[in-house]
Each structure stands twice: as C-alpha cells, then as structure tokens.
Design a protein around this nucleic acid. Structure first.
Lengths: 143, 143
DNA sequence: CTCCATCGTAACTATTGTTGTTACATCAGA
DNA sequence: TCTGATGTAACAACAATAGTTACGATGGAG
C-alpha cells in the first residue's frame, strides 16, 4: 500500500495554526506552514483548501492574508480531518473484476466489502477519540 | 492513499484453495487461482509465497504440483493473512523530515506515530475476529 | 531416465496515486 | 496602485503496486 501522508500533514498544519494563533498572531500563511512541514506551500494550500471545504479553517486573501481556525483545536477531531482530506479506502478490492463464473470470484467482493466496512468503522471510532488539542499537547510534550 | 489489494487477493486465494480442497481436489495451481481472481499467475505465486513463509500454505513442485492449506480455513484469521502479506503502515508520516527547529515540526512525528499505533492496533483486533471460514461462508452466501 | 506441468524468481513494463514545482491570475488591505 | 497572499491549472518527479515475459529448477508419471 502506498500509505499517504495527507492526514499527517493536515494535522501538522492545523496544530501549527492553532499554536501560532495562541501566540497572538491573527493569521498563518501557507509559506510558514510549509516551512515547518518541509514541503511546498502549494501542497499546504491544496490541503487547507479541503479543510476549508469541510469548514475547519477559513482563508483570507489580499495583503495580510492567510489562514485561521474556525474552531478551537479541542473542538476538532482527527476523524473530521480524516473525512475532510478523504484519503480513500484503507483496503482495495481487486483491480480488475474477478471471474464471475467462479463461485469465489462472484462472492468475494461483497464479502470483503462488508469486512472492510467494519474495519473502517473501528478506525473512525478511534480517530473520533482524538482531538487536535490532544495532538498539539503531544507535540509540545516531545522534548 | 493508494490502497492496495494484496489482502483481498490473498483472502481470495485462500478461500479458493479451501473450497477446492473441500471438493476433493488435493492441490490447487496458481493458474487456477489467477483465473478466478482475474490476474496473472505470477502475482498469485508471489503472494502465496509470502503466505507460505508465514506457514499458512505449502507448495509442491514437479508434475502434479500446486498449493495446499496447512490448516483449516476456520483456523486462519484475517490478521494472520494481513501480517503475512505485510501491506505496510495504514498512514504515513511526512515524506521528508519536518523542520526540527520548529516546535511543531519537532514534535509532530512522535505524536502522530503514537496515534497511528493505536489505530493500527484496533485494526488488528478487528481483523483477528474474522477467519477465512467466515470469509468463505460470506462468499457462498452471495447469490 | 526422459518428459512436462508447475513452481521460483528475476527483470522489466504499465498503471496509478501522491507529492513537488512552476507559473500566473486574482484578491483586498495599506 | 502596490504588494503579499491565496486559488488553481498544468506538469514533472517519485513511489508503490500490479502485470508480464522469460526461463531455470523440481519431481512425479510413464
């Protein structure tokens, strides 16, 4: 699986904005965040754009523009971020269609779909338990 | 995330072998399984090779060769298959190293590593609850 | 003891998805 | 009007999985 880092970068960005605001700065720029995450500002803008579509952040344009949180970090769960960035399914079915003339080929996809749905639900429950404030506190605890 | 289908194909192959053996056939060939899964025999051989390394199947060479289960389907959990095929982490950290001179950049990886470890553990618990016999029964129930 | 079906495996290509980069239009406050 | 930022398209770079071809190795059947 090519695990993807979108959830990690999104959490990083939100934690960064939250801490920055807490330090008295009104807005954070994609360039500042990109510098912290060691990536390109466009990557950050794309990701924050998805978070904005989910209502987690706001952006402002023009001079002195940037990004702000719409809620406290404690009011944002990792599940919301996960849904916002839409990382796709954890497990995939067959790339092509299995042989429908075979009993196993015919029944395997519905069977695995059910199983995977159950797994994804437990993942969602787990992500719902963690807020971005938890993430920031864990970040600050690393010394 | 580029979800991968390795777990799906592995479950498909095991269910196929189990059903085939139950029908009185001693061994299954990678070509038969590939035909059911609509993929290439080499893909199946590679995957079953990993399952063999984990002790879930045996292979025999020479004429009349093929694959056999080493245990009943009911004695194999999806977790064992998941571990055997080693799909890698569900979530990735940053591709590059975040800015260690930044508080968030410094602490984010340990923080997310912990969180992801918890999520993966719940996934493992969930996969442990399902056996390949459960998979086969679900397959046969699809009509 | 030869034949041949099948595995074992290397090497390469194809495909897919993510990430990184460049470029530039757009916006809005000073 | 200038300026610093976002918005977004387009494309390149990179990585991982999957598919394919090729061929050597094995070992039971005859």
């Amino acid at each position: 699986m090519s695990a993807n880092s979108r959830l990690t970068i999104a959490a990083h960005a939100l934690a960064w904005i939250g801490l920055y605001q807490r330090q008295g700065h009104p807005v954070a720029t994609s360039e500042q965040i990109a510098d912290s995450a060691n990536t390109n500002p466009v990557v950050i803008r794309r990701l924050l754009g998805e978070l904005r579509a989910a209502g987690l952040v706001e952006s402002h344009r023009g001079a002195g523009a940037g990004w702000t949180l719409t809620r406290e970090l404690a009011q944002i769960t990792l599940l919301e971020v996960y849904d916002a960035v839409d990382t796709g399914p954890l497990f995939a079915l067959h790339r092509g269609t299995p042989n429908q003339g075979c009993v196993v080929g015919h029944g395997i996809q519905p069977a695995m779909t059910n199983i995977y749905a159950g797994v994804e639900e437990t993942v969602r429950e787990e992500l719902r338990k963690t807020t971005l404030e938890d993430v920031l506190q864990a970040v600050l605890a690393a010394r």
